[in-house]
Amino acid sequence: MASLAGVTLAGCDSQASDTEDTKDVAHIRIAAAANMSDVLPPIIEAYQQRQAQADIAVTDIDVTYASSGKLYAQIEAGAPYDVFLSANQDFPAKLAATHVGTAPFSYTRGQLALYSITQPLGAPTANTVPALYRTTTPLKITLANGKLAPYGAAAAHYLQQASQGASLPKNVQTIQAENIGQAFQYTHSGSVDYGFVALSQLVATKTPKSAYTVLPVAGYPALLQDGIVLSDKPAAQGFARHLQSAEAQDILTRSGYLPVSDAQ
């Protein structure tokens, strides 16, 4: 679990109970899709700085990053998260049906990119994927598990559209990653030749544009990302509002995401 601000432990004396209750309300746990691991920390930092400048209690925030499907399963099993930031709309919609009084909110739209550091002929292009179905060169490609990771499902859809009904040749091996973070690691380390990754990961790591191409958004379902508040803590509601603010949206845009309105 990535902790952006440590939890203050209350003492054992009789005067600690009120303080402990206050601290608990101002402490939230966020379950966030793996693609948010680079952009969420600066959003949280900006939020906490704004609270400090306004001379109000700074919210302690713990974040767990994983595939959206894995986090959804943890929440269904009773994991005590206060906010869930998914990489799709489906998982928050399912949780809304069981968490009375809460409604999902869209906070950003992701972009898919094709990335490679092993191919010597420059950046992959939108024509690279169709060419994979004709190549005789041994290659490895990776994408996240589409059942758990929305970015993986988008990549699988893009592959299917590009194949025009064909199957990948035996010399092209598909490596399934657990989530988009692992797909990026496989590609960034050179363990695979091509990887379907989130554009935000490439922006965060300052990857040269010669190593990737942003895939056309018309080639896969819109990667609209929804969040949902799962507890009645005011701090959770407060952070959800901040995530939809102009300040947070500007950080998301600069990090390779699209405005939600672009899908409408």
Rank of each mutant, 00 (worst) to 15 (best):
Q176F: 10
D232L: 06
T125Q: 08
Q237T: 05
V129C: 08
A240T: 04
P234N: 10
S116T: 06
Q237H: 09
I180K: 04
Y158W: 12
D38T: 13
Y158L: 14
A126V: 15
K70I: 14
P124G: 13
R109T: 15
L95S: 01
G152A: 01
G6C: 11
S17K: 03
V217L: 10
N127F: 07
D82C: 11
A31S: 04
D38K: 13
T187A: 14
L168F: 07
I56V: 15
L159C: 02
L223Y: 09
S86E: 04
T213E: 15
A26N: 06
A154Y: 10
T207K: 06
A54H: 08
V129A: 07
L223V: 08
Q173C: 06
N179T: 02
A149E: 12
L132I: 05
G152C: 01
G146P: 09
A5H: 04
A34W: 02
L121N: 13
A2C: 08
L168S: 03
A144L: 06
H157G: 07
D90W: 00
R134H: 06
A131D: 03
K23I: 14
E45H: 07
L121S: 08
N179G: 02
L121R: 03
V217E: 12
A149V: 06
P130V: 05
Y47T: 01
D21E: 15
L199W: 08
G101E: 02
L252C: 04
Q164I: 01
A248Q: 00
